Amino acid sequence: MQYPAVTWLVAALLFVYGLVFGSFANVIAYRVPRRESVVWPRSHCVHCHHTLAWWELVPVLSWLALRGRCRKCRTPIAVRYPLLELLTGVLFASAWWQGHTIAQVVVWALFWLYIMMAVGTDLTAMIVPNVLSLPAAVIFLCASGLTHIQSWPNAAMGLVVGFAMVLLVRLLSGGRMGLGDAKLYLAVGAMLGPWLSLLSFVLAALFGSVIGLGLRLAGKLKAGQLVPFVPFIALGVIVTAWYGHALLRVYMQLVGW
């Protein structure tokens, strides 16, 4: 028997853990592309190098309390930092409903952390470092198969299909699609399987096209300007993980399968 109060309590705890891990994802996003240690030195303002006090490191709340500015030099702190923390919290909470066992919940939470790290590094430096993507491919292939999120054949096929489809787009686009995006899809494919991976990439392209067009019309994006694509991949993966099977059923009904 499942008790609603316990269900929501666990989801709330996962949300809080997600906020904390989202803060760590921000550290990874800034330091890893620069090949800096993620442990030392302590968190500091990247402009005036003021070492942050503990109360300046509380996810989301510190940014709100400081009104989005460094306490010392008053330099604006990008809104993407609290947004990434908040989204990681939401995704950690969603892992509770995605996983049917404790092991699956943990794997989904770690997968969302990886996706948010990739979003952060892409927004910061427009790369997905190999030190993140390649170990993640192995980790999530094994985790997906061992916890039965996907069958072993489905996880392996998803890994191959995910990488191959983005690599093909990279080749057809003359290199405008980053190779890091293809490596990111190694882990995505292992977790979603081949069909849902394909759906997530279609959605990512759709989100990218719509938002990109909006930015062009608003004068915020110049013709030929490169933009980070991993945030759109993340949107596609999130929607697919939550609603992918339902979307596929609707599509099959529309085409008469």
Rank of each mutant, 00 (worst) to 15 (best):
F140W: 11
Y3H: 14
C70F: 11
G212C: 09
G189D: 10
A5N: 09
L254W: 14
V166E: 04
M117C: 15
Y114V: 07
F15H: 07
F207V: 13
P194M: 08
K220A: 13
T88I: 08
G224N: 10
S151F: 06
Y17H: 08
Q104W: 05
G244W: 11
R42I: 03
Q225W: 06
G219P: 08
L215Q: 13
A103G: 13
E36K: 14
G158D: 11
S200V: 06
S200A: 15
L13I: 13
L66M: 15
V169F: 14
A205I: 12
A12V: 10
A155Q: 06
G89Q: 06
W97R: 13
W63R: 01
G224C: 08
I28G: 00
P4H: 08
V188L: 06
V46M: 09
L167I: 03
P129K: 04
W108S: 02
P33I: 10
A29H: 04
A93G: 02
A190E: 07
L52Y: 10
H47C: 06
W8M: 12
V230S: 00
P76G: 03
G256R: 10
T121H: 04
V202K: 05
S173K: 12
S37M: 08
F111Y: 14
V169Q: 12
G193Y: 07
V202I: 15
Q104V: 03
L84D: 01
M116K: 05
T88Y: 10
L13G: 12
G178T: 10
V38W: 09
L57G: 02
M126S: 11
L87D: 00
W242R: 14
V27I: 13
L61K: 06
W108A: 01
V6R: 06
A204C: 05
S144L: 02
V39H: 04
G175A: 10
L87A: 12
G162F: 06
V105S: 01
I233N: 09
A164G: 00
P135M: 07
G22V: 05
A204L: 05
L215V: 01
F111C: 04
Q104S: 00
L215N: 03
L14A: 15
P82R: 07
V210P: 01
F163E: 02
S173T: 15
E85L: 01
I149M: 01
M1R: 11
L113S: 03
L184P: 00
L86N: 04
P41W: 12
W96N: 04
C45K: 09
L206C: 02
V27G: 02
A187F: 05
L248C: 07
G178W: 10
Y243L: 14
L206E: 00
G158S: 11
A93C: 11
W108Y: 15
F92H: 04
S151D: 14
I149V: 13
T88K: 05
I139E: 01
Y185K: 00
F15G: 11
E56A: 00
L52N: 10
V6P: 00
L171D: 08
A125L: 07
L168N: 02
M252F: 15
W54A: 15
V131D: 06
S94T: 12
T75I: 09
S37N: 09
W63H: 03
G212E: 11
W96K: 00
I238E: 05
V10K: 09
I139V: 15
P41F: 11
L13A: 14
F207M: 12
M191D: 01
L19F: 12
Y3D: 15
L57C: 04
L146M: 13
G68F: 06
S43L: 11
V38R: 07
K183M: 03
W257S: 09
